Computed example of a mutant assay.
Amino acid sequence: MTIDDHLDTRPSDQELQRLLSGKTPEPSFAHLVRMSDDTGLFEHARGPIPKRWHGYCVDDVTRGLIVVCREPEPSEQLVRLAEVYLAFLLHAQDRERGFHNRMGLDRVWHDEPETGEWWGRGVWALGTAANRGPTPWIRAVALERFDDGAKLRAGLGPQSRLNHAMAYAALGAAEVAEAHPGHPAALSVLADAAVTIGRPGPDPAWPWPEPRLEYGDAALPEALIAAGQHIGDEALLRDGLALLEWLLTLSTRERHLSPTPAGGWSPGDPRPAYHQQPIEAAAYADACARAYAVTRDRKWLTGVRMSIDWFLGVNDSGIPLIDKATGGGYDGLGLDWRNPNQGAESTIALISTLQHARWLDRIPTVAT
C-alpha cells in the first residue's frame, strides 16, 4: 500500500461530527516545526514527511514568518523559528534587484533576485514582522528591510502578476502603518497598490479588475480595504468592501465556501470546480477578518466562519483538510478525495485560518 491509496478519504459521519462539534481546534505548529530546519522551511512533503530534496522557497518562508509573528504568546521554539525565517529572507533579499525565491538543499540559490510575486510576499512578511515580531530585534531588522524592499516596487516587471504582487506588499505596508502611523514608505506602497489594482469595473456581473479569477484573489480587495483605511480614503474602502462581497458571494455555494480552483475560473466555467487549495480559504479568512475589523459589520464573520469550516469538512466534497494527528493541512480538495500530502503552504494556510477562530469563537453568535 502506498500513500496514494489514501486519496479516496471521504470521512465517516462520525469523523465529521467530531470535527464540527465543540470548539474549533487550536492551531498546531507541530507540522510547521517538522517542515523546518536551521536554514528555512521545506516547500513540499510526501504525506507529512518533508521532501528535503525539493529545497526551500521564499514564498513559503514568508508565509511561515507571518503566522509565527501573528501568535500572541509564542513559545521559545516559535521565536526561534521567526529568527530562522527572517534570516532566510535577509539572505534572499538583494537591495537592488528584489528577492531570490528558490534555494536547494545545498543552500545555493537556484535563481536570480527579481521582483516577482515573492517580492510582494517578502514585503508582506517583513511588514508583519516589523509590527508583530516577538522580539524588539526582529521588529527593528524587519522594519529596516521592509523599507529596502518597498523601494523596489517600481521595478515590477512582466514576470509578476502586478495586481497580486502589489496586493501582498500592501498587506505588509498596512502592518507597518499600524505600528508606525504616517510611515512614508508604507503609505506610498498602499497608494501605489490601490492604483495598480484599480477600481471595480462598470459591469455589476463582473466588477473584478481582471478577466479571470486566479490564485489568492481575496488579497486584492483586502489590499484595497487596508489602503482605504490607512490612507483615509472612504471611496477606496468602499471599493474594496464591494469587491470582497462580490467575490465571497460568487464563492459561496449552499452556505459553504466553494473557492476558485487551482486552475482559475472564468464566467461560464463549471462550479463547483476542483482542485481547491487551502491557500484560498486562508485568503478569504484574512480578507473577511480585516473587513470586520474595519467596519464591525457582522456579515463578514460569516466569511471567516466558512473559511474555518472549509478545513473541517464543510466544503463541496464533505472532506476535512486537517490532519489532527500531525497538525498538517492537506494539499488540496478534489471531487471525492483530498491530496494526502501536507506541504508548507497548505499547513500554513490551516494555521492562519485557525488563528482567526480564536477570536471568532469568543463572539457569542454568528449567523451562517
Rank of each mutant, 00 (worst) to 15 (best):
A273M: 03
L224H: 04
P209L: 10
R296A: 14
R253V: 00
G264K: 09
D309Q: 14
H180I: 03
D192N: 09
Q277I: 15
A170T: 06
G201A: 11
A293N: 05
I197S: 03
G228I: 04
A235C: 07
Y292E: 00
R271C: 00
T196M: 14
S188N: 13
Y284S: 03
A283G: 07
H183Q: 13
G232W: 12
L241E: 10
T260A: 05
A291G: 01
P270C: 07
D192I: 02
A242G: 04
T252Y: 09
E280Y: 06
A173H: 14
R199E: 02
D233T: 03
A227N: 14
G240D: 03
R298A: 12
H275C: 01
H183V: 10
E210T: 12
P207L: 11
D217E: 14
D239P: 09
W300K: 06
E254K: 11
R253M: 11
D309A: 06
L301C: 07
H183Y: 12
G182M: 14
E222D: 09
L250Y: 13
A194Q: 11
I308Y: 00
R298N: 08
S258I: 00
D217H: 11
A177D: 10
W246A: 06
D286C: 09
P261K: 10
S307P: 05
A174K: 08
P261F: 08
P207H: 00
E245Q: 13
P261V: 14
T249G: 15
L237I: 04
P209W: 07
Y292A: 04
A282W: 07
S307Y: 08
L224N: 00
V195Q: 08
L247D: 02
G268C: 04
A170S: 09
A219P: 00
A281E: 10
Q229D: 05
A283Q: 04
A194D: 12
E234W: 02
V304R: 09
R212A: 15
R305N: 12
L224M: 07
W300T: 00
I279T: 08
S188V: 01
S258T: 07
D233C: 06
L244N: 03
A293Y: 00
A285E: 12
G240R: 01
R298G: 13
G172W: 02
R305Q: 15
L241C: 07
P211S: 02
G172Y: 02
L237A: 10
A177F: 09
A227M: 13
A262L: 12
P278L: 13
V195S: 02
P200Y: 06
P202D: 10
Y292R: 01
A287L: 01
P261S: 09
R271S: 11
V195H: 06
W310F: 05
S258W: 03
Y274F: 15
G263H: 15
V189A: 09
T302R: 15
E254L: 05
Y215C: 00
P207V: 01
P259K: 01
Y284G: 02
H183G: 08
Y215Q: 02
P200H: 02
Y292N: 01
A173C: 12
P204R: 05
L213T: 01
D203K: 11
S188M: 13
V189G: 08
A227G: 13
W246P: 05
V176E: 08
A287I: 00
Y215N: 03
G264T: 07
A193H: 03
A193I: 00
G263I: 06
W310V: 01
E280S: 07
A193Q: 03
T302S: 14
A177G: 11
R212D: 09
I279S: 01
L301G: 04
E234Q: 14
P209F: 04
